[in-house]
Design a protein around this nucleic acid. Structure first.
Length: 258
DNA sequence: AAATCCACCAACCGCGAAAGT
DNA sequence: AACTTTCGCGGTTGGTGGATT
């Protein structure tokens, strides 16, 4: 069903994602957000290109992604929107909550395209649908459904309840669901004023106890130990003490003045 | 039982737009 | 204004599983 894993000439992995990779990516984004897709895999400890990470997150790991089991209403809406908008899958996906553009596109090509001119799907089509449904149910039983994985992870809900979560000014955020925005912590920091350290303490038990904010000396003296502390991936704030970190410090020191 | 066909869909690729310098 | 980098979109590919022969 999926492409076999392989490595390109740059040593980057391609093909199907393993559960471990999914976990790494999910954990990293939940904690630090997707501050830069290109750099993210390095910090998250993934041998993937940023593009691949982005796709995986957007289509499968992101909270509230619905899989399989299209309702009649959804089908009709897709057909209607496609008539109006054409192949603007990203626009169409915004009208169907939880559905990704990639999935809608696939669904269109495999199910709706043939049907759009006909009322009843052919027999083979109906057969496939039942297969799809049972597949989905099987996945749910095995707990493979991404959303089920999230169901066991409290952080999105916790974050959602914080005062900081929605209504962010970023243009990117405006296009995201509230749940999705919750995990993009970096963007908040850069674009929103922070009113209290307790606020972030609520987001993640030890978020603000991370060395990055404690004091500068930590970074210089103790940086290598951070790897272990961060559970296998690097904090974007401190992993390489370069200009971007300086900028980040500046931002953080300026924020209280707002 | 084995070979072949077919549908599905996860993932890749290339391009254009937007943002940054 | 020009150039570079990053992101996001849409088209396409290729591996897999189930159905059919």
């Amino acid at each position: 069903m999926v492409r076999a894993p392989c490595y390109d000439k740059n040593g980057l992995k391609k093909g199907a994602w393993s559960p471990e990779e999914d976990n790494k990516l999910r954990a990293y984004i939940q904690r630090y957000g997707h501050w830069n897709w290109r750099e993210l895999p390095k910090f998250a400890g993934l041998s993937r290109c940023g593009k691949s990470c982005r796709l995986r997150w957007m289509n499968y790991l992101r909270p509230n992604v619905k899989r399989g089991n299209y309702t009649k209403e959804e089908d009709e809406l897709i057909i209607k929107l496609h008539q109006e908008l054409g192949n603007k899958w990203s626009v169409i996906s915004t009208k169907l909550s939880g559905r990704t553009d990639n999935e809608i596109k696939n669904h269109w090509h495999t199910h709706l395209k043939k049907r759009s001119g006909k009322q009843n799907p052919p027999t083979s089509e109906r057969r496939k649908r039942s297969v799809e449904t049972s597949r989905c149910e099987a996945n749910q039983k095995e707990g493979l459904e991404p959303k089920n994985v999230f169901a066991h992870n409290a952080s999105p809900q916790i974050l959602e309840s914080t005062p900081l979560s929605p209504e962010l000014s970023s243009s990117e955020f405006s296009s995201l669901s509230a749940d999705y925005a919750l995990v993009s912590n970096i963007n908040w920091v850069a674009e929103e004023s922070i009113t209290s350290s307790e606020t972030f303490g609520e987001l993640d038990g030890n978020f603000w106890t991370q060395p990055f904010l404690a004091d500068n000396s930590y970074i210089e003296d103790d940086f290598p130990s951070l790897l272990a502390a961060e559970g296998g991936f690097l904090s974007p704030y401190v992993s390489s003490y370069d200009d971007s970190v300086d900028l980040f410090y500046q931002l953080m020191h300026e924020l209280p003045k707002k």
